[in-house]
Simulated assay, not measured.
Amino acid sequence: MDFQELATDRLALVHIKTHHAASFFEIISRDEVTKYYGMSSITEIGQAESIIESFRQTFESGRGIRWGIVIKETGAFIGTVGLNNLNLKGKKAEIGFELHPSRWNKGYVSEAVKEVLDYCFGELGLFRMGAVTFPENGASIALLQKLGFEKEGILRGYLYQDGRSHDACMFSLLAKEHTIHNAKIC
């Protein structure tokens, strides 16, 4: 499968490369970003480069896709959105995202996730999209619900961060629900 870059009115969803490492570091090194991320903040640019390399390997192995979120007008790299646990044969994946705090509450993540969902349910033919988040992450939970995701339950001790296990909320959206939800908001 070739990497498919995507676009919305305001955003380009691009293949993340090494030249994005400084911008990615600026995001993922912030405790307010990683608070509910499932990993601790990074402290060195080399760690950002390693994560970007892991995105490439995950894509090449067919286990995931990660896009950089870039504002078209300025070229600013402001976050990422992507698929974890991608299983094309099983027609399912889990979505995840993070954004620089200076860009929070501007609709960028919602816009990017909608585009990725359209691509996944349309082009990739997925049937199910999951999302896992900390129960305390009200902003992500509100976003998922706004996009039509339904809470399935709590995964006990599912996330490990900062030396301890944390419960997680599991959400899902099925292809037919996405189609119905899109029709309602258009």
Rank of each mutant, 00 (worst) to 15 (best):
S54W: 11
G82K: 03
I65C: 03
L86P: 05
K89N: 08
L88W: 01
E60Q: 03
V81I: 06
I78A: 01
G64M: 09
G75F: 13
G82R: 05
K91C: 15
I71H: 05
S54I: 12
G75C: 14
G75R: 11
N87Y: 03
I65D: 02
G68S: 08
F77S: 02
K72D: 04
S61M: 11
T58F: 06
L86M: 09
L83Y: 07
R66V: 03
R56Q: 14
N84Q: 13
L86G: 04
W67A: 00
G75S: 12
R66C: 11
R56L: 11
S54P: 11
R63H: 13
K89A: 11
G68E: 03
G90I: 15
R63M: 03
F55V: 09
I71K: 10
N85R: 08
L83P: 07
L86W: 09
L83S: 07
A76S: 02
G90S: 13
K89R: 10
E60W: 07
K72E: 02
F55W: 15
G68T: 03
I78Y: 05
R63I: 01
I71A: 07
E73I: 00
G90L: 14
I65G: 00
R63E: 14
S61A: 08
V70K: 03
I71G: 11
R66H: 14
N84R: 09
N84A: 12
Q57W: 13
S61H: 10
G64H: 12
F77T: 06
G90K: 11
Q57D: 14
G64Q: 10
I71E: 06
I71F: 01
R66S: 12
G82D: 04
T80V: 15
A76R: 15
E73T: 02
V81N: 04
G79Q: 03
Q57V: 15
N87A: 12
N87V: 02
G68M: 00
L88D: 04
R56Y: 10
W67C: 00
F77V: 10
E60P: 05
G79Y: 09
A76C: 07
R63C: 04
N84D: 13
I78R: 04
G64A: 06
W67Y: 04
V81H: 09
S54Q: 14
I65H: 00
G62H: 13
T80Y: 11
T74I: 07
L83Q: 11
G90C: 06
I69S: 00
G79M: 08
R63G: 07
I69G: 01
G75T: 11
T80E: 15
I71N: 04
N84C: 01
N87F: 01
R63D: 08
F77I: 07
G82F: 00
N87D: 15
Q57C: 15
E73C: 03
I78N: 06
A76E: 14
